[in-house]
């Protein structure tokens, strides 16, 4: 369970808000590429609360997004469960908030987790597109991962300035 109930409330509010924002990413979409803000939230929660919670949050956010978006039901849930599992494996309870999220290690974890997430997620959508397999992964996977890392760097900078 999350360390405190106040954390649980914050995670729930953040999750609901980010679900809505993720659904309206036209504001920050560049050439059809959007960052995955939900993966960033999963990473923050998984690195603070542990792998087990990260997997549950990944599944819950993925499933919720599947329900409210036009994606194939289960695809986001599957990709985000795996992302929660992979990112959660980097959990270290000895590390403070600054150390776990406020360093470049966080960006590396985000890049790694998002790349795996995008690979799994894109797998379900590569067939209907008219792009080649490689260009699809390059565009959606790599570009999407980089954009997510850029957005995660904001979280990293905020966490780095925060005193634990």
């Amino acid at each position: 369970m999350p360390s405190t109930y106040s954390n649980l409330i914050w995670y729930t509010i953040s999750g609901l808000l980010l679900l809505l924002v993720q659904l309206n990413l036209g504001y920050i979409t560049i050439e059809g590429i959007a960052p995955d803000l939900l993966v960033i939230l999963i990473a923050v929660i998984a690195l603070r609360e542990g792998q087990f919670i990260g997997i549950i949050v990944g599944f819950a956010l993925g499933l919720a997004f599947d329900v409210i978006s036009s994606n194939i039901p289960g695809t986001n849930a599957l990709a985000k469960v795996v992302a929660g599992f992979v990112i959660g494996s980097f959990y270290n309870e000895q590390l403070s908030l600054q150390q776990s999220i406020g360093t470049f290690r966080f960006l590396f974890i985000i890049a790694f987790g998002t790349a795996i997430h995008n690979f799994i997620f894109d797998f379900f959508y590569v067939e209907p597109t008219d792009l080649s397999l490689w260009s699809f992964f390059l565009r959606s996977g790599v570009a999407g991962t980089l954009y997510t890392v850029v957005m995660a760097s904001i979280v990293m900078l905020v966490a780095a300035r925060k005193k634990t």
């Binding site: 997997i55 549950i56 990944g58 599944f59 993925g62 499933l63 599947d66 194939i72 039901p73 289960g74 695809t75 849930a77 599957l78 469960v81 795996v82 379900f124």
Partner: peptide, 12 residues
């Protein structure tokens, strides 16, 4: 959870 997700995908 992966199993649940796959079931959801297959019953989409």
């Amino acid at each position: 959870l992966i199993s649940i997700s796959l079931i959801l995908i297959s019953t989409s």
